[in-house]
């Protein structure tokens, strides 16, 4: 039964990674850049939700919506100010700028909200007999599942389905795929590349806000560097599944989460990160373009 417990919490953590990884993979697919600031957008989302719910006493739904709106706008502003002028620059120049944005967000958060850890409120709880209940039990209490876990997994599946439908059915989604294939050709077909990239950043950042709220609901300590390690792991997950591929990000995120929790439970807590990265290296050696990545053979 404990295995099942670990598996469920692994899937839950993996779902959070998957949501973050979707943001990475979409931005990478279109703008061909590693958006290092993505992890810090997660942190901003979590802080906004925390301020709305704990400080202003707004209902959780409003808090989440506020986080999504703030992060979406933030993502678009970052793209406009920092990345758009560098469209023609080398990818390394854009990478360094992204690192600069990441430092900026972290230090701005440090000044605005101080380094003291904040305890994130339990958003998903119901009151039974005057007591707060954050989960339910199955099999005579042998299996405990919190509401956060269930909501995280459901949210991840909904986001996956909606995004897949969005990219395959809608005009904007098709424009996004066209841009990721060939920007020049897309522009010739009358697609506004700048707007499409901007929309991609908006979607990615909105997802980051949701991921931030879910992450801090599951692990409720909030500091200005909260986003960086999950950001790196989610990026790893995106590569794991094949960067640029939406189902790849989903599978990569889930696998990474499950491996991390199982490694923590059965092998060693301190070495779990090393094990996760070791699995990544082995996978990339067997499949150099990730699990679902397309192998592009170079033409000479």
């Amino acid at each position: 039964m404990s295995f099942l417990n670990f598996l469920i919490s692994g899937i839950s953590l993996g779902s959070i990674y998957a949501i973050i990884a979707l943001g990475y993979t979409m931005v990478y697919g279109i703008a061909k850049m590693l958006n290092f600031a993505h992890g810090d957008v997660i942190m901003v989302g979590a802080y906004v939700c925390f301020l709305a719910v704990s400080k202003s006493g707004l209902p959780p739904v409003v808090g989440i919506l506020a986080a999504v709106v703030v992060c979406t706008v933030l993502g678009m502003v970052i793209e406009k100010l920092a990345y758009k002028p560098l469209r023609q620059a080398t990818s390394l120049a854009v990478l360094i700028t992204a690192i600069g944005v990441s430092y900026f967000l972290q230090n701005a958060a440090l000044l605005l909200w101080t380094p003291n850890p904040k305890i994130f409120p339990a958003l998903f709880a119901r009151t039974v007999d005057g007591k707060k209940v954050t989960g339910f039990q199955l099999f005579d209490g042998q299996l405990r599942i919190s509401y956060v876990t269930v909501i995280t997994i459901i949210a991840c599946i909904i986001i996956m389905v909606v995004l897949t439908l969005f990219t395959s059915r809608t005009r904007t989604g098709k424009a996004m795929r066209a841009c990721s294939e060939d920007k020049g050709a897309a522009q010739l077909m009358g697609i506004n590349v700048d707007t499409t990239i901007s929309i991609t950043f908006a979607i990615g950042s909105g997802l980051a806000a949701i991921a931030g709220v879910l992450l801090c609901s599951a692990y409720p300590t909030l500091v200005p560097t909260t986003g960086s390690m999950p950001g790196i792991k989610a990026f790893t997950a995106a590569v794991f599944g094949g960067i640029g591929s939406i189902p790849g990000a989903f599978i990569g995120g889930l696998l990474l989460g499950v491996i991390e929790i199982l490694a923590k439970a059965y092998i060693s807590t301190q070495m779990s990160d090393a094990i996760v990265f070791l699995v990544l290296i082995i996978v990339l050696l067997v499949k150099p373009a990730g699990l679902l990545g397309k192998k592009i053979s170079e033409k000479v």
Binding site: T236, V239, I281
Partner: peptide, 25 residues
């Protein structure tokens, strides 16, 4: 060095983290 581009970058990142974990333990 068998990999290319961003995949190579992410694997060096992974090795950096592994080395850190090993020395931490």
């Amino acid at each position: 060095l068998r990999l290319n581009g961003d995949y190579l970058a992410i694997v060096t990142l992974a090795f950096g983290e592994i080395i850190k974990s090993v020395f931490n333990n």
